[in-house]
């Protein structure tokens, strides 16, 4: 049993997408409400896009977690690249159609028309930039046939703006961009996570200077912040075990934050 004060905070920052760990932040909450409203509209496709680590996957998981209580929702978080497999998996998960052989688009649309849902089933596709253009075209056809409603997430990279691709530009009816957190949002994010896990003492150690440094190092990226916090609390755990006198409990040590940043690659010696 680990009795360190910092072991629990360390574990809650493990980079795992879990909808239960979703933290309400003003801007993200607003986006999430918009997303939920959009999903209820007769839209065919909804796009969530943003740079890596802005919380797209978390939002998608949260949406899946919330919507699955009321309607048919299926989430594909690991892209299925093969077209046949993609349609077969969808038929199995949505329509409970089990077939070991690959299904064609025509077969899938016939199957969809045969099954009647009060609300169109929702398919959540994470990392959609990994799908081929041909498969995306089939997804568009399924969406146009109103057989399924798709919510997809995309990385918005500087090198290639995938949103600009034709098949997204012409099909998507609503798009939501996720951005990196501000310093205040990051503070709320970190402290809420800690408070949620009852780590009050550790949450109180974060002062504005610490937060500014963390925000500067991570550029407001939630994934980087998680990694940094994990390394930081790992360090604190080590110091608590080996050199407890070096720990000051009233504030985080800038040195340790920088050491954690060096460890995670946010800083380079």
């Amino acid at each position: 049993m680990d009795h360190s004060l910092f072991s629990k905070p360390r574990d809650i920052f493990l980079d795992i997408v879990n909808p239960r760990d979703y933290v309400q932040i003003d801007s993200v909450s607003q986006m999430y409400q918009n997303l939920k409203t959009s999903v209820q509209k007769p839209l065919k496709m909804i796009l969530l896009y943003g740079k890596p680590g802005t919380g797209k996957s978390m939002l998608l998981h949260k949406l899946h977690h919330d919507l699955s209580k009321h309607q048919k929702v299926f989430m594909i978080d690991i892209p299925i690249i093969d077209e046949g497999d993609f349609l077969r998996v969808l038929a199995q998960k949505i329509y409970s159609y089990v077939n070991r052989e690959a299904i064609t688009l025509t077969n899938f649309l016939e199957l969809a028309s045969a099954v009647n849902f009060t609300q169109a089933p929702i398919v959540l596709l994470d990392e959609a930039q990994l799908y081929s253009t041909a498969l995306m075209e089939k997804i568009r056809l399924i969406s146009d046939a109103r057989a399924l409603k798709f919510v997809i997430t995309l990385h918005k990279t500087d090198d290639e703006d995938i949103i600009a691709k034709e098949h997204f530009q012409t099909r998507i009816w609503e798009s939501i961009e996720l951005k990196n957190a501000s310093a205040d949002e990051l503070k709320v994010y970190i402290q809420k996570k800690l408070l949620k896990a009852n780590c009050f003492d550790v949450a109180n150690m974060f002062n504005d200077k610490n937060i500014r440094l963390i925000s500067k190092l991570t550029k407001g990226n939630y994934r980087e912040a998680n990694k940094l916090m994990f390394s930081l609390f790992t360090l604190y755990t080590w110091y608590e075990e080996n050199h407890p006198s070096k720990i000051k409990y009233n504030a985080l040590n800038t040195k340790y934050i920088e050491m954690a940043a060096l460890h995670t690659g946010l800083l380079h010696a």
Partner: peptide, 18 residues
């Protein structure tokens, strides 16, 4: 597990560089 001694050296190097 973190190599804290190595990290401290790296941090010192980083601070000097900074």
């Amino acid at each position: 597990m973190l190599d804290v001694a190595s990290l401290e050296r790296q941090w010192l190097k980083y601070k000097i560089k900074q």
